[in-house]
Amino acid sequence: MRDLLAALAELRERLQEIPQADERRLHDLKTEILGRKAGALTQILGRVPTLDPSSRKEVGAAANALKLEFAAAIAARERELKRAAGSVAGLDLTMPGRAVWRGGLHLVTQVVDEICDIFRELGFTRAVGPEAETERYNFFALNFPKDHPALDAQDSFYLGDDLLLRTHTSPVQIRTLERYPPPIRVVIPGQVYRRDPFDASHSPVFEQIEGLAVDEGISFVDFKATLATFARRFFTADTRVRFRPSFFPFTEPSAEMDVQCQICKGVGCATCKQTGWMEILGSGMVHPAVLENCGVSSERYSGFAWGMGPARIAMTRHGIADIRLFYESDVRFLAQFAGGVR
């Protein structure tokens, strides 16, 4: 019994080694003292049952107490070492961090989503329609007169006798009016096609966002308010907005909406051709003929509609001079708008 108590006392001395031990030493100490088979304390504890009952209790209690002390000291040291491993002391913190690839949405997608989200706050859901369209949907139901110069601005790619690539997202106005009863409040993002050669400011294919609201009693005031609210939310709350006359076969009255030039804040610069204004969208009150063409009473219902080019809006807002950058897909360009470093 005495030799066991002496051994325990000797082992207790070794507690002092623990606070200095490095990771490896600590592991060795743990095995040496608490190891499941050959650990010094384990062996002492294994001999306790062989002692005579009078000393069994004393030695057992002492050995168990020491085991707990070791376990606690080792655990404490382990935590300490782990903390030290996560410490930045002595490191050059200007060295680059470890990166992962960052993905990102195309800038045009980001702007489309941003615009549609603002209109969602104003009660508009997202609708879509086909890109290959018939003349009825693309032109005639939208009140384009046959053989009229208004068609010239819509020079189109034809796929067949009565099948063309839509020149605007407006055909989806017709599809929506045919399918759903008023009240209608939708925005319609989508790709459209014009027979324009590809250059810095024209693309034969581009994104457009159409909007349509039809209900009883919708007025020119509602129209102006909705679009002006959009402009102030998309740009800044104090952005000035103006509406001026225009012509579209499917709206009457028709209007263009301009916003204060975002580059010069209305003073006049090269981007806005010294006017202080940027053209943002074409719009107007839905032409009664459009409603009638869809079997909707133009006496009972009225509405407004608009169309805008998110790519062009992105160009003015982000200072991009050449529309072709959007389609080149240079990863350096795409990454600039992905919010990442690579």
Binding site: R126, Y180, F243, A255
Partner: peptide
Amino acid sequence: GYDAFPDELRPYRPGTVPDAPEE
């Protein structure tokens, strides 16, 4: 003049068209 008309938001009724599943 279009500018002579106010642009105050007035109440509206929510629409009947659900979001397109494609979108």
